[in-house]
């Protein structure tokens, strides 16, 4: 019997919901804006399952993007995924947005530097490399300043760039390789999810958290006022 996976990409617009099995993404649908109404994610998932003749108990795992990305979309996605795991014990696969994007890179790429806007004049950067087990992070998620790209000899350019931030990088004169993925999609999450399933690597729903990648502005202001102190 096929192992079914629900895939949720809610880190970036457009948010997409999909059903997949070992052969690939079988069906998908775009979601409305995930704003304060938390959108139509739950009813759309019901529809998708019914349309494909599946029930909740047919789902082996749920793969969800956990960030970085838009905060509301990430919260809607993860809160929904956590609730889903409660219903019939589906396993949770929490996939960092940039890792999912790495799996979308062209097949001849062996390494990629992912960039994504972090707002407040900053961007996220993380390196990935393709090995026998597929794409893996080979550096920690870093927070950098966009104005670093203005330096002509910046070492940031030494690796092929991809990710949601390449549009802005390109506008700043950085050369982007053809085929560099910029919009996270469910296919990337599905590939990353399959790799985790194959290795039996699941996340504990009671411990998983969103990968914000940076402190909230309240924490940043507090740290400025209380240098050397730790916020809880």
């Amino acid at each position: 019997m096929a192992k079914w996976m629900v895939v949720m990409q809610t880190a970036e617009t457009p948010s997409v919901l999909a059903l997949a099995n070992a052969s690939g993404v079988v069906d998908s649908c775009a979601l409305g804006a995930l704003k304060r109404n938390s959108g139509d994610l739950a009813p759309k998932l019901s529809e998708l399952l019914a349309k494909n003749g599946l029930g909740v108990s047919d789902i082996e795992a749920i793969a969800v993007s956990i960030g970085p990305g838009g905060y509301t979309g990430l919260r809607v996605g993860l809160a929904s995924a956590l609730a889903f795991t409660l219903v019939r014990g589906a396993k949770l696969i929490a996939i960092p947005t940039l890792e999912g994007l790495a799996w979308q890179c062209p097949s001849d790429w062996t390494k990629a530097r992912m960039v994504a806007d972090a707002l407040r004049g900053r961007f996220f950067m993380q390196d990935f490399a393709k090995g026998t087990d597929g794409w893996q992070a080979v550096s920690a998620l870093e927070l950098r300043f966009w104005n670093e790209l203005e330096a002509p000899q910046s070492s940031i350019f030494s690796t092929q760039l991809a990710g949601p931030g390449i549009g802005r990088a390109s506008a700043m004169g950085v050369s982007i390789s053809p085929g560099a993925p910029s919009v996270p999609d469910v296919a990337g999450l599905w590939k990353a999810g399959c790799q985790r399933m194959a290795q039996n690597q699941y996340d504990n729903p009671a411990e998983v958290d969103i990968l914000y990648g940076q402190p909230s502005s309240a924490e940043e202001q507090w740290k400025k006022l209380h240098p050397g102190s730790q916020v809880n």
Binding site: L41, P43, A83, L86
Partner: peptide, 19 residues
Amino acid sequence: LVGALVVGVSAAKMLSSML
């Protein structure tokens, strides 16, 4: 607080839909 409410509302909607 909308950002707070949306967490409970999202979970409730998923539980209601799936159950």
